[in-house]
Every structure is written in structure tokens, then in C-alpha cells.
Simulated scan of single mutants.
Amino acid sequence: MTDIHDTPPTGEGPADTRLADFERHRRMVFGIAYRMLGSVADAEDLVQDTWLRWSGATGPIAAPGGFLARTVTNLALNRLDSAAVRREAYVGPWLPEPLVTGPDAADGVERAETVSLALLVVLESLSPLERAVFVLKEAFGFSYREIAEALDRTESACRQVGSRARAHVRAGRPRFDAPPELRRRATDEFLAACVGGDIGRMLELLAPDVTTWSDGGGVIRAALRPVNGAENVARFVLGVLRQLGEDAAVHPVLVNGEPGLLVTVDGAVDSVSVLDFVAGTDGTLLVSAIRAVRNPHKLAHLAAPGAAGRA
């Protein structure tokens, strides 16, 4: 498999070169695994498994990135069966484990299109093969020839799968694009209204058909079904804030490359939320969706506000 991401040899010894090649591609390996599985912990496991396959390979490998992409993709496909069984029994709405970076991260937003929580939820509805083709093509720019080699399929079959996956994603997540600074400002305005308990202002900032999903996984209190409609969502959000009490603090962060909020209570991470927007009639941004992850198992990798993630 030819790899468009490969770099020239370093001139180090064989063992050092093998390690250096893996480290150069570690971010890609994690990114593929995370997009395929929607789990930081599972993605980390696959990075380690991929390293074991890589370090145990014999003979020279002409395209390290290609080998690593093929390896982690097939490992992820093998793991998706057990992940699907777990999610069938999941309590309440399922959301991916969030990747969180500081609000000024230089490279967060540029990858938001291929790693946002909303997109990862749509990817859950694709078949494993569709997901693999979509991730390799749309997120990492592999050619269909390279993807066909990685997945042991024909190039024409991969093109058909890719076309089907793109159509499904477009139908499942119509995207409204707004500059990051406008989304950040709109997020801050909504936060101020929530913290101030200003339900009138909240209703001005919420789209009439707004929906909120809260993922507690049956471990912590959360809505078992999506909450729909501006007034219902506003009252639900205010109710959650009242329950958190005066020791709660809200921190602006990037959540999977998009402006979001990290809530702590007594210094411990309680939840991570991200907002989607649509354009209002006067050109302002209205909140169209809120996705809040509260399941503590999905937040365990976030030790503190601004904890770094990889995308």
C-alpha cells in the first residue's frame, strides 16, 4: 500500500528507525482508531496493538504509514463487533468519548469536520466497512487504490462504498458552517444566559426545534431520551445547573475541534458539552443541538480542564 503520508528514512539504526517511523505516524494511528470506535480508551488500546504488530514485523517496510493505517483499520474492524453488542445494551443516548483541548489550540478547528461529535454519531449508523472507507478517504486522504489494498477489496467496490457512506453522512448531518470565532461567541452568550438563569435570553438563543442529548450511560443521572424544543431544553439545562450547585465551574474548551464547555464540580470533571448552530432569520447563530457527555467512564482521560487530546 503506497502511503501519501510517508516521510524519508531518518538514517538511524534499524530499531531506532522503526520506533521513529511509528512515532511519526502515531497521531494518524490514533485518529483512525478513534474515528472508527468513538472511544479514547479503545483507540489507545489499538495504538498499542498496532505498535506490537509493527515492532514484530520482519524485513523492511517501504511505506510505514500505509502498513500502520492498514493494521489499525483492520484491528478496529475486528473490535467493532463487540462494540456494537455493548452499545445495544447502552442506557440512554450514546455519545463518543470527547477529545478536549484548550480554547486556543492552534490545530483543533481545522480537523473539526472529520472528528466532531455529531459526525461520529452519524458514523455509528454506517456499516463497519462504510465507516472504514469514509474515515480513510475523507479524514486522511487515502486514495481508493490504497484503501482497496488495506481492506482487501477491489477499487471499484471501495468507490461504491465510499459514495454510499458520503451520501449517508450528508443526509444524517446537514452541516451549517460558521467561522470558529462566531461559534465561540455564540457558545459564550448561551453560557452566560444559562449561568445567569435568564430563561428569556436562552429562548432567544435556542432554535425552536433544538434537541439536547445527555450521555450518562446509566452510571450518572442524565436524560434517558433526547429533549426536544426550545422551552423544554432551556428548563432542562437550568435544572441540571441547579443540581450541580455553587461549586460548579464552566471552562471554555475545544471539544473535538469545536467550541465547547467543560464543567467541573469541586475540581473534578462532571461533563463535556458541545453546541451545534443554525442561522437565525436575522443572521445570528441559534443553538440547534446540545450534546453533553456525563458518563464518568468516558471522561476518565480528562484529568483537568484543558487536558490535551489527539485528533
Rank of each mutant, 00 (worst) to 15 (best):
residue 4 I to V: 15
residue 34 Y to H: 14
residue 131 R to P: 01
residue 226 P to C: 08
residue 97 E to R: 05
residue 137 K to I: 00
residue 114 T to R: 05
residue 105 A to F: 04
residue 142 F to A: 04
residue 310 R to C: 07
residue 77 L to P: 09
residue 95 L to C: 10
residue 69 A to Y: 00
residue 204 E to V: 03
residue 215 D to G: 09
residue 26 R to D: 11
residue 26 R to Q: 14
residue 31 G to F: 09
residue 128 P to L: 11
residue 57 A to G: 04
residue 218 G to W: 06
residue 19 L to D: 13
residue 4 I to H: 14
residue 266 D to K: 15
residue 115 V to W: 01
residue 115 V to S: 07
residue 69 A to T: 02
residue 127 S to N: 07
residue 276 D to M: 05
residue 170 R to D: 10
residue 17 T to D: 15
residue 86 R to A: 15
residue 287 V to G: 14
residue 35 R to N: 05
residue 240 V to W: 10
residue 295 N to P: 01
residue 126 L to Q: 13
residue 307 A to N: 00
residue 302 L to R: 02
residue 165 A to K: 01
residue 25 H to P: 08
residue 257 G to P: 04
residue 223 A to I: 06
residue 27 R to P: 01
residue 135 V to R: 04
residue 192 A to K: 11
residue 185 R to F: 07
residue 96 P to D: 08
residue 241 L to G: 14
residue 15 A to R: 08
residue 58 T to K: 11
residue 148 A to C: 10
residue 253 V to W: 14
residue 131 R to C: 05
residue 60 P to F: 11
residue 17 T to P: 07
residue 59 G to V: 11
residue 84 A to L: 07
residue 51 W to V: 05
residue 41 A to W: 01
residue 67 F to S: 04
residue 57 A to T: 10
residue 263 V to L: 15
residue 48 Q to T: 12
residue 286 L to A: 00
residue 149 E to H: 05
residue 242 R to L: 12
residue 164 R to M: 05
residue 39 S to W: 02
residue 209 D to S: 09
residue 171 A to C: 08
residue 96 P to H: 05
residue 156 S to C: 04
residue 123 L to M: 10
